[in-house]
């Protein structure tokens, strides 16, 4: 326990390319870019499914299918298949990002379509009846009303990504996971536990920040 504390408070462990700061920034970079790509794919798709009701069955079964694949297995499979075809220095990073994106899509997608689906049909009907165009109904009523569930989906995607980005350290990409994996390799338990502590704190802070943003963005009228 004391060793863990010593490791965490030693200034030397915080600086440099394998220092905590750099690893933290890497971890955030991987997570943020995967989430951004996943959101770009899943949100429009989810809104479309929720709005039209089409493709719901496909989306649900796909999401459930992906959920039952162990993320570690997915990571290794994608890596072994993709890495030989990538000839830059990112041969490990790109497959890892791909896996993170794949894992982040189902919860974001589910949040988006479930959010739009549960919008009060009367509000939608009233909006149409008052002369809002289909586009205005989507952006001014459906999306704002769907925000609580969309945030829910995005937050679980974020947790999933932060956690899996840690595991991705196994395939020699950076991020805080390095401390866990390297600590294990060097039998340095204080480094391992210190790193684990940092990842745990990161996950909780990311969720707290997103919860804060949610409070700011979601209309108070939608809180029960």
């Amino acid at each position: 326990m004391i060793d863990v504390w010593t490791w965490l408070t030693s200034g030397a462990n915080w600086v440099g390319t394998d220092g905590i700061w750099h690893r933290l920034v890497q971890h955030l970079e991987y997570s943020a870019s995967s989430l951004a790509i996943a959101a770009l794919i899943a949100i429009p798709l989810g809104l479309w499914i929720g709005h039209t009701g089409r493709g719901r069955v496909v989306a649900v079964s796909l999401a459930n299918g992906i959920r039952s694949i162990p993320s570690l297995g997915l990571l290794f499979i994608v890596l072994l298949i993709l890495a030989p075809h990538i000839h830059s220095g990112d041969a490990f990073l790109i497959p890892s990002i791909v896996v993170l994106v794949v894992l982040a899509i189902p919860p974001i997608l589910a949040g988006a379509y479930a959010g739009v689906e549960q919008v009060d049909p009367a509000a939608r009907d009233a909006g149409r009846g008052m002369g809002l165009t289909a586009w205005q109904v989507l952006w001014r009523i459906e999306v704002p009303c769907a925000l609580p569930l969309m945030f829910g989906g995005f937050r679980s995607a974020a947790l999933q990504v932060v956690a899996t980005a840690t595991i991705a350290a196994t395939v020699s990409v950076g991020g805080l996971g390095r401390f866990l994996i390297d600590g294990l390799a060097y039998r340095d338990y204080s480094m391992m536990a210190g790193g684990a502590l940092l990842v745990g704190l990161l996950a909780i802070s990311v969720d707290a920040v997103l919860a804060g943003v949610q409070r700011l963005v979601v209309s108070p009228g939608l809180r029960s």
């Binding site: 326990m1 863990v4 956690a163 502590l197 909780i204």
Partner: peptide
């Protein structure tokens, strides 16, 4: 909810402590 936010690998490593 907070418990669920903690990644599994973190829990595996910290639980022995």
């Amino acid at each position: 909810g907070a418990l669920y936010t903690v990644p599994s690998l973190v829990l595996f490593i910290l639980l022995p402590l």
